[in-house]
Structures are given as C-alpha cells and as structure tokens.
Design a protein around this nucleic acid. Structure first.
Length: 140
DNA sequence: GCCAACGTTGGC
DNA sequence: GCCAACGTTGGC
C-alpha cells in the first residue's frame, strides 16, 4: 500500500462533503498539473490518502481511500488528465496543521513543505505514521 | 492584499 | 529551444 496527500480548498470541496458523499466515494477531478496527474495514475485501489484543507484551515483533516483507479477526468475536455475515486475513511481526531508539520523536523522533507503548490503528493510510510500519531489516529 | 514558487504560453 | 511575460496556487 502506498500513501498520498490531496489538497482541496474547503470552499470548493471540503472533508465534510467527502464524508457526506458516502462509502461509494466520488471522483477526484480538476487536477491540471502533470506531476499531480502522474501521482494520480500511480495510485492503487486501497491506497490511503491524507485529505488536506488549503487556504481555510491549512490542516490535514482526515484520511480517504482510493476506491477506483485512474480514469479520464470527465471535467477535462482535452482528455489529457485523469481522476480517481476517493471515499472518506476516518477523520483526524485532532487535525494536523501545516504549522505543526513545519515544526516537526522529521517532516521537513514532506512534499507539503517542499512543494507547496503540488495538489496530489506522495507521502512516505514514515511520514504517514508520524502524522497519524500527531493527529491521534490509529489503525489506518 | 502581497508575494514567492512554478507552470504555461508565445515571440524570436 | 530559449526566455520573458503572464497566470495560478497557496502561505503569510
């Protein structure tokens, strides 16, 4: 299993909406960056994904799971980009803020810190474990 | 509201 | 193929 992080402005699509979308999941569309696209294409069914709120919040608020591997993004006329389906799995008992991540030396290499504009990023197993610990989340 | 980072576009 | 201009993202 691989780990990832996706970003969304909660005004556009929030964790709450992801939760309300239910267990079938919804398409994660709108990615228009080739590095992010490549990450979407690498995602496998069952991979776990941190859900990060950019702009308002600036914190990891929950964990989602890939329920369908990449397919053409229906919102992309050019047919160049792809989407995956995600479903909400568990909220962070205590959201992990960007400030907290920046304050943790072991997380200094996270893409969230180093490539702040990338909207779909890989997360290492070590980073995943540490962030889950900071958020009080166990067993995902 | 500003600005840094960075991707994209288009002239040459 | 280079690079300046420009647009967007996202933190502060």
């Amino acid at each position: 299993m691989s780990y990832w992080l996706v970003k969304s402005e909660p005004d556009a699509w929030s964790w709450q909406q992801q939760v309300e979308a239910g267990a079938k999941g919804t398409a994660w569309t709108g990615v228009r960056n080739h590095t992010a696209k490549q990450n979407l294409k690498t995602m496998k069914k069952g991979d776990h994904v941190f859900f990060y709120h950019s702009g308002v919040g600036k914190e990891i608020v929950g964990v989602a799971e890939v329920t369908r591997e990449h397919f053409p993004d229906p919102t992309d006329k050019s047919k160049m980009f792809v989407a995956v389906d995600l479903k909400a799995v568990a909220p962070m008992p205590q959201p992990v803020t960007l400030a907290a991540i920046k304050g943790e030396r072991a997380l200094a290499e996270m893409a969230l810190v180093k490539q702040s504009r990338l909207s779909v990023q890989p997360v290492t197993a070590a980073e995943w474990k540490l962030v889950c610990g900071m958020g009080g989340l166990k067993g995902v």
